[in-house]
Nucleic acid binder design. Structure first.
Lengths: 238, 238
DNA sequence: GGCATTACGCTACGACTCGTAGCGAAAGCT
DNA sequence: AGCTTTCGCTACGAGTCGTAGCGTAATGCC
């Protein structure tokens, strides 16, 4: 249970102040004076709303999910929902992001076992219906809205990518992967690995609709590792 | 210009009859007696509707796209739209599927060049805003509806996968990839390659939001090919 | 304690979209 | 001709959206 998040899923303005960002509202109220005085927002309402959102995602899916329905399920007024989230997109991002809290990098001693462990965890999350219907929908919407894209990146994507960074560092320390001294090259390699791993698992689960079982993971890891083994200093090859 | 499609994008019941499938309607009219007599459906209306759908996808995105708006753009009545498509999902699938018509397998003589060519084509399609906003949205919806899933698979996914099958066969003929006599193992390998290639490109483009340029493609292809080179008969390795 | 400030639940509202029904006219086939 | 199906159009009830307004509840500051 390492690295506790410093306030991700508390949805919008996590009472911690220290940010005057435009993250808050829909654009309705202009200023946000750090929220010092007044009645604080109910934290239990947040949890109830996000849980209700996931429940509605399972039962209704993305397109038929309505904020009024979520409010009823959560036992709060619809207006409360609109005070905290700008709309359906932002709400679902936060609701889905909580699913990825359990994602952890195992320390199994070998890079292959690490990858297989992470991939199986990732696949288990993606197999849940609330993740299936919610995740790709917000990704699709985020291609049109920069604010939503940033939110998805901060809440979901970057947390996954960190596992790649850490796992790669461990593997390099063990000598299983070649070191890359140039930080720019290293960043590109991390991006490539991340897109290959996450992309393959997501595509297998959501597009192909096939399960990510141990047999598939073994085959995938074998191909990936063989491809990465001697992957130093050849980006300029032609 | 090989393999001309035998009628994909003509949206629903391509006048070719020869199918009594449940593909047609919303479930409103029960039977479809092969549509022999009567006024035929306007083919130009189909093209106009699908083009209008892509236009609306670019300007409005998935969630704000309405069928009434598409009908107005296409110059047809809203009722005409509902006579041909069951809803927004089916319409967008057909509109997006047409984007992938141009996808072709180059015959460049080496597997690496073939992969790089296909990936760049695929990435160019995904870079278009109508593909970005539409494709992932219908994939998300298809996780809840089997009928929609079949439609996505038939119209989009299987056409992509065929490129993998053909490219792999050519590479095996050249000796660049090991042969796999067992058809079951071969099918699993094709699925793995497909999910790795398509998944990485999709993830890079839509989730990471980074461009698939030649540099990235070279790096990706290098890793993939090295991983596949000696990939015969080791699925049972432990 | 009192006061200012903010969040809450509730109701109500206009605007919009949905999907369908019904009509008369148009465009094919035999 | 006659038959059949599609087309454009209008209209409709149902449902959702996002906001406004109100009175009340819960905090911090003096």
């Amino acid at each position: 249970m390492p690295h506790r998040n410093s306030g991700h899923h508390p949805p919008v303005i996590s009472l911690t102040a220290a940010q005057e960002s435009p993250v808050y509202g829909h654009g309705m109220q202009s200023r946000r004076p750090a929220s010092r005085t007044g009645r604080p927002r109910s934290a239990t309402a947040d949890a109830a709303i996000l849980a209700a959102t996931r429940e509605a995602l399972v039962e209704l899916g993305w397109s038929k999910l309505t904020l009024g329905d979520v409010a009823t399920r959560a036992g709060v007024a619809k207006t409360t929902l609109y005070r905290r989230w700008a709309g359906k997109n932002e709400l679902v991002v936060d609701a889905v992001a909580e699913l990825f809290d359990e994602l952890e990098l195992p320390d199994s001693g070998s890079l292959a076992a690490d990858i297989e462990g992470v991939v199986l965890q990732f696949a288990a999350i993606l197999a849940r219906p609330e993740a299936k219907s919610g995740l790709m929908a917000v990704v699709a919407e985020s291609t049109r809205e920069d604010a939503l894209r940033s939110r998805v990146r901060a809440s979901i994507v970057d947390r996954q990518k960190r596992l790649v960074v850490e796992g790669r560092a461990r593997a390099q320390a063990r000598g299983e992967l070649p070191a890359e001294p140039d930080p720019s090259t290293a960043a590109r390699t991390v991006d490539l690995i991340f897109d290959m791993v996450a992309g393959a698992v997501v595509h297998r689960t959501l597009v192909s609709g096939e399960p990510v079982d141990e047999e598939w993971v073994r085959g995938f890891t074998a191909v990936l590792l063989r491809g990465l083994a001697a992957e130093a200093g050849r980006t300029a090859a032609g």
